[in-house]
């Protein structure tokens, strides 16, 4: 009995994974196949990028400030508060910027996509698209995936800058360090990280590959759960929750493995 249940659950998981990867393959493949719904992609870029700007600005600024505040306590014991800019820059660009932007977008945009597609599923709008001769993946999933792949790195760059600016505020007003010194250590950190192809800082590569991958994870997970919604409006709620939980966990787990891989490749 228990074995049977385990068997069923394992089968369901394997089928779901298969469906997920088929969806991912089609969604990415359709970027290069006509008709391409460019206006939908631009609309989604606006919703994902511009729509998430406020929440990303707030998160980045306060994270930068709190990071500077906490670090200053440790740095004071070593008398190394001059290097606070270096610490904030490294943390924000490599880790906190991409992960926080990813988590914020997963909460705000991922849930929105899942709820929207879930509602379309339960009100037969997805079937209507099919009957009108449109592939729902091409029309709904591809523009969202493309928009997320482009906009998450953009949001991360903004998040990084605002976070470092938040650190600057604490460094100036709490620690009394001049801004020039702060920004000097920020750039030193970036330059010390090394370069790829002579002029691309390794920190930037690390900080841009991650949000690109996270953008794909968020949009695909949200579309997958949204399109597979069953059980009416209650089902829409379930899909939304699953999206946020799954995408957040996947972001954190993927972040670890990506860091390992990127360090192995770029940080000799």
């Amino acid at each position: 009995m228990i074995l049977e249940r385990f068997n069923d659950a394992a089968k369901r998981t394997v089928y779901s994974l298969q469906d997920f990867f088929v969806l991912a393959g089609k969604a990415v493949g359709f970027i290069f196949v006509k008709p391409f719904y460019a206006s939908d992609a631009v609309q989604q870029m606006d919703a994902i990028g511009v729509g998430s700007l406020g929440i990303v600005l707030l998160t980045g600024f306060f994270t930068g400030m709190v990071l500077a505040l906490q670090s200053s306590v440790q740095l004071k014991t070593f008398g190394a508060t001059d290097y606070i800019g270096s610490l904030i820059s490294g943390s924000m660009i490599r880790e906190l910027g991409p992960v926080l932007a990813g988590l914020m977008v997963a909460g705000r945009v991922g849930s929105g996509i899942a709820a929207q597609l879930g509602s379309m599923r339960v009100t037969e709008q997805i079937d209507a698209l099919n009957t009108l001769g449109t592939d729902p993946i091409k029309k709904l999933v591809t523009p969202r995936v493309l928009a997320a792949l482009i906009m998450l790195p953009v949001l991360t760059v903004i998040n990084d800058f605002i976070g470092i600016l938040g650190g600057n505020v604490i460094a100036s007003f709490y620690l009394g360090k001049p801004s020039s010194l702060y920004w000097k250590t920020v750039f030193e950190q970036i330059l010390n990280g090394g370069f790829t192809l002579r002029f691309i800082p390794n920190d930037f590569i690390q900080g841009l590959i991650k949000p690109f991958v996270f953008g794909g994870i968020i949009s695909l997970v949200a579309c997958f759960y949204g399109l597979n919604t069953t059980g009416g409006t209650e089902g829409v709620g379930v899909s939304t929750t699953r999206t946020v939980v799954t995408a957040s966990i996947m972001i954190l787990v993927t972040d670890y493995f990506l860091t390992q891989i990127i360090l192995a490749i770029f940080q000799q």
Binding site: S119, T123, E124, Q125, D127, A128, T131
Partner: peptide
């Protein structure tokens, strides 16, 4: 074919 759905299924 043209299809008319139970709830109309108009795009919101």
């Amino acid at each position: 074919m043209g299809m008319v759905f139970q709830g109309a299924a108009l795009f919101d």
